[in-house]
Design a protein around this nucleic acid. Structure first.
Lengths: 166, 166
DNA sequence: TTTATTTGCTAACGAACGTTAGGTTGTTTA
DNA sequence: TAAACAACCTAACGTTCGTTAGCAAATAAA
């Protein structure tokens, strides 16, 4: 709180005119980011699109949220486990629900023959790992733009590294 | 320190018979894990192997280290940023060196035509993200064994999700 | 213009933290 | 057998932490 107050140019005690507690700040960051993520995929719902297309869009949406909120993303991804109950459990439920959205796409891809995936849950966890690691290196002034990041990640996850002779 | 002491069944003050400081514990975990990772890739050095094979082996080695040290891995991956100087800078240097090992493999794969990678650094960061996310879900008693994890991750990163008609 | 509200201040509180000091007990070594 | 050493204990310290209380000043509203 003293570090935050320093950054704001006020005293730590003054922050309590604006918030109830430190825990409330963490809750707000985590649940607002969760809302951002869900909001971003909510508008994508188009189950007529191919699984490939749906996955690309989901990846892109996720990347947009992350790169638009780099600091909140870092807090969201690294500090959620400090949430107190019942928020901690609620948060895990949201995370599960978000993962299920991706699993559904993967399952659809398997069913349609677009994807060949030995383990669906593993695939989703790996996709999300690639997405959620972005905050560790992404800089707004960096050479790779969010759209390029999404494109590269999609290409890598869909096509793999190996040279494709198709 | 009191939580750790509780887990050990001794008093917090007693820990200081065995270590110099809390910071020393963090240093030891982080640098010993770094040693483990470097040791694991050290024995792999065989530049005659294809880039594909080298990458598979590097992934496998990394997975073995992570899954053999799940708790230390969590500390290593999540707490390194709390290291004090000069250890913090040393740690980043080690991390860079480890990343370079992977970049070298990718570069070799591009040169030999095995890989088609728009951005080599991005590819490595994504590979490492998949690897370093494992500690968030892996359980020794889980259904997927380390060797299977390595195999699935390699397949996914090399071949991608898309059904390969080759 | 006066009152209410907002936002910040200082001072302080109780709790938690990492660690030190001195002592005791058990183990090892000479 | 005695001395040295190791490993633990209790008690406590100074620091840091999140937060509250009471107050002052600035701003907004009546």
């Amino acid at each position: 709180m003293r570090d935050l107050a320093n950054a704001l140019g006020i005293e730590a005690a003054s922050i309590y005119s604006h918030i109830r507690s430190k825990e409330e700040i963490l809750q707000r960051v985590c649940f607002r980011m969760a809302d951002e993520f869900f909001g971003a995929i909510e508008v994508l719902k188009d189950e007529k699109a191919s699984a490939t297309e749906q996955l690309k869009r989901a990846i892109s949406a996720h990347v947009q949220v992350l790169t638009r909120n780099t600091e909140a993303s870092a807090v969201f991804l690294q500090e959620w486990r400090h949430l107190s109950e019942p928020h901690h459990t609620e948060f895990l439920a949201l995370r599960d629900r978000y993962e299920h959205y991706f699993r559904k796409i993967i399952r659809q891809g398997i069913a349609s023959g677009e994807f060949q995936v030995p383990d669906e849950k593993f695939a989703v966890l790996t996709i999300l790992s690639g997405l959620n690691w972005i905050h560790t290196w992404y800089k707004p002034e960096g050479k790779m733009k969010p759209a390029e990041i999404a494109e590269n990640l999609s290409a890598m996850l869909l096509n793999g590294l190996k040279t494709n002779l198709n």
